[in-house]
């Protein structure tokens, strides 16, 4: 390329290329969510397909078997869990005003005793402000759930786009990657190949680990809540599993609703038992699951992760929080490769 273009022309071409890529992503925005979910499914199922292929099955048969197994598991899970979860959500929606009132009463009592002890904070009416904010948040969440679900799982995406995309990504993903790499000019080939593999290794390991970890944390939390006879155990357990995808903040977000419900339900288990249960789940997750699942796939400093999550949530909400850590991992690869190149040149 250097024979045909000046550095300035190359810069213009690079910026134009980046612009075209962003434009394509913008035009594709409606299918980005199912595409991202297909990619995550591909990362999860790829080891199984590879193992079946190594065992001697043609890859296409392995892909069909893996997708069949996933469909069977989802079908069974949906058949047994979905009706119960749906009933719990309906019941929770109906009972919510009562819970909010109870929460407000508890809060007001606490506020009174606090005002007696510390008269100087009387002008702050934190309970009604806090409860109103929480009420608005919960109402918004319940209003948003159908919108979120319909945007993520539109009928077309579920029945057509996601399975087909996942099928072809599993079957031809390797060829697609090779075709992309083959198109890279000789001069940049080794560098691009190295970066692509390192990014792929980190991202795949992270996404696969995250999904598996969230599934296990969700299952452990649900079982714990069922044993402690907490109301809406299934919904809260699933929420805890989902929230666990956001490092550091997730476990707290998952535990708070469970503690609030036990506080407002005097007939159930004491609140400290629920806190203890979530604490044990976190101990198992941090000391057993995470080292087993992730190994040293990312190796990022906790402060970097916290900053990335805060920035991600500001820029792109929930998706930003979920994508913050893998994006940080990718940036780390680029910085490491650049540093390596500079180091070798200076030696």
């Amino acid at each position: 390329m250097s024979r045909y273009f000046t550095p300035f022309q190359k810069l213009i071409l690079g910026v134009a290329g980046l612009g075209v890529m962003l434009l394509i992503l913008y035009l594709m925005r409606s299918i980005l969510t199912p595409l991202a979910l297909s990619l995550a499914l591909t990362f999860m199922l790829n080891p199984l397909v590879n193992a079946l292929e190594r065992a001697g099955l043609p890859r296409v048969v392995g892909v069909i078997l893996a997708l069949g197994l996933l469909a069977a598991l989802l079908g069974l899970g949906g058949y047994f869990l979905f009706p119960k979860a749906y009933l719990q959500i309906l019941s929770l929606r109906a009972d919510l005003p009562v819970y909010m009132d109870t929460l407000k009463q508890h809060g007001l009592q606490a506020q009174k005793s606090l005002h007696r002890s510390f008269p100087w904070i009387q002008q702050i009416n934190f309970v009604s402000q806090g409860v109103d904010a929480l009420h608005m948040l919960v109402i918004r969440l319940f209003q948003d759930i159908p919108t979120i679900i319909s945007s993520v799982f539109s009928i077309l995406a579920i029945f057509l786009l996601m399975p087909i995309t996942t099928f072809f990504l599993l079957k031809d993903g390797h060829q697609i990657k090779r075709a992309f790499l083959q198109s890279v000019p000789n001069r940049y080939f080794e560098r691009v190949l190295n970066v692509v593999y390192r990014v792929e290794y980190q991202t795949v390991a992270y996404v696969r680990g995250l999904l598996l970890e969230s599934l296990l944390v969700g299952a452990m939390s649900t079982i714990g809540l069922l044993i402690l006879d907490v109301k809406y155990a299934l919904v809260i357990g699933m929420l805890a599993g989902f929230a666990n995808m956001v490092p550091y903040l997730g476990p707290v977000v998952g535990a708070v609703p469970a503690v609030l419900f036990t506080l407002m339900d005097p007939s159930g288990s004491p609140w400290w038992l629920v806190v203890l249960m979530f604490y044990i789940v976190q101990i198992i997750d941090n000391n057993l699951l995470q080292p087993l699942i992730y190994g040293r796939s990312l190796n990022l400093h906790p402060i970097m992760i916290m900053f990335a999550i805060i920035l991600g949530s500001q820029w792109a909400g929930l998706w930003g929080m979920l994508l913050a850590v893998p994006t940080l991992g990718i940036l780390k690869v680029f910085v490491q490769e650049l540093a390596k190149e500079l180091r070798y040149r200076l030696v």
């Binding site: 090779r178 000789n186 080939f189 560098r191």
Partner: peptide
Amino acid sequence: IYRRQYTSGETIFKEREPGVG
């Protein structure tokens, strides 16, 4: 294996570049 074509005089890799293969 990746099959790569090079024209006469083209550099395949340079000394001190990170090597990958």
